[in-house]
Design a protein around this nucleic acid. Structure first.
Lengths: 233, 233
DNA sequence: GTAAATTTGTGCTTTAAAACATTGTTATCT
DNA sequence: AGATAACAATGTTTTAAAGCACAAATTTAC
């Protein structure tokens, strides 16, 4: 692996997808009132039970949002990519966080204080509406996940996870390798299965020529087939 | 069972929990621009794939929001009680509904046309914020459900469902009978299990004196114990 | 009010996935 | 660079829950 270059973060206006609905005053205010934080791989950004203090935006890197369930078994709720917001749901409901967030690779995060965020939400209708859309979308995804994770069989759940990762992070230059290298354990926690079963099922997919593996690099070879597997349940 | 009386629906201002943030103009407009619909027990209100046309408010009765999963096995996402909104998430995301909604007992529903609803959302910041809060809350519940339904064992899932129903619908005069009489199949679909297993597990709970059953009437006798069962997983 | 159709209740069988155990392999840290 | 820890791969055993079959009891419909 090449030595990591610590790149300078982009300016906030290039990172915030909701920048267009802000007023000139709000823009200037946010330029001066946000902080930049770097997190190392596997570093915890916030955890369940914490009082939310900031709304956050992933500038670069990749993070996982997960919950600790029975016997501290983790369930990954969703994976974020640059430009996505997080940590603000708990601000809106006025409750402690109910998820943990951790970096799965070195990540840079912009933070905006909770009171500044709510103040804009309450004064800028278009801004508020954007987050309404975002939550409406996330809720649809979450509801769909309930059914996928509870009703599909192991193969279907893992196939689904691989397809979602590909859609979310895209592929590398070869056009097939999924642009995120997760540990088998993370794949298992995404797909609601044990690590052994994730490993076993990946091996089966590889034997069946549906995917190809090179360590953590996963290549989807037969996407049609993977889609069929994910639908069969 | 006593003969059902068809009660006159209450006026919209008594039903809409967000009435307080509306302007006098909006109030008058909504008084004139909403429709009232009655649904019989088990009647479908809207289904997966339908284009959303109205945001809806349950005036009276009880409805279930559910998804059809693998092999058309239903998963109840949530149960609604009077005063709750539904059908609007799809309006906000501009997509077809991704859930079915059906009355589990005779229900009266107020409907507001989609374009009217979005227009108020886009012009009344406080109104928009209220729905932002509602979705933020629902997303938290949905995420928690992912973990509960995937990681807990049958007994834990059913215990959880019973406690949630009690919290949501309350109890009758005796202080113990849950104020909703669901079919075993609905209880199963709520708790991600087969009907046989719901029946079996309810019988076990009854033998253990945790609950008492009289047909569809379920009485929670030992709530502490039920809470412990639901936490154990 | 009676017949048909659901719904409920049980026992038995099968099966998918977890749990466990062991070994090989790859990162990570001083 | 070598030690140590974390991760990956597989085989075996156990178990929770689904699937199935059938009888009894309720609803619902005509």
């Amino acid at each position: 692996m090449a030595k990591k270059t610590i790149s300078t973060p982009r300016p906030i206006e290039k990172v915030m997808t909701v920048w267009d609905v802000l007023t000139p005053d709000e823009r200037q205010f946010l330029r001066n009132n946000h902080t930049v934080h770097r997190f190392k791989k596997n570093e915890l950004i916030h955890c369940e039970g914490d009082i939310p203090t900031h709304m956050m935006i992933l500038e670069s890197g990749k993070v996982k949002v997960f919950k600790e369930g029975v016997g501290s078994r983790a369930q990954i709720i969703r994976m974020l990519k640059p430009g996505e917001h997080f940590g603000y749901r708990a601000i809106i409901t006025n409750q402690p966080h109910n998820t943990n967030v951790a970096a799965v690779e070195p990540s840079t995060i912009f933070m905006i204080k909770a009171d500044i965020f709510t103040s804009i939400l309450k004064h800028n209708n278009a801004f508020c509406y954007r987050f309404l859309e975002e939550l409406a979308c996330d809720l649809g995804v979450s509801d769909a996940r309930i059914v996928n994770l509870t009703q599909k069989h192991i193969r279907g759940r893992l196939a689904e996870a691989l397809l979602t990762l590909k859609k979310n992070y895209g592929v590398e230059a070869d056009g097939a390798t999924i642009s995120i290298y997760l540990a088998r354990e993370d794949l298992a926690n995404l797909s609601n299965m044990t690590t052994s079963n994730a490993i076993r099922t990946l091996s089966n997919f590889a034997n069946e020529q549906v995917i190809a593996m090179d360590g953590r690099k996963l290549k989807i070879i037969d996407e049609e087939r993977l889609i069929r597997i994910s639908k069969m349940g």
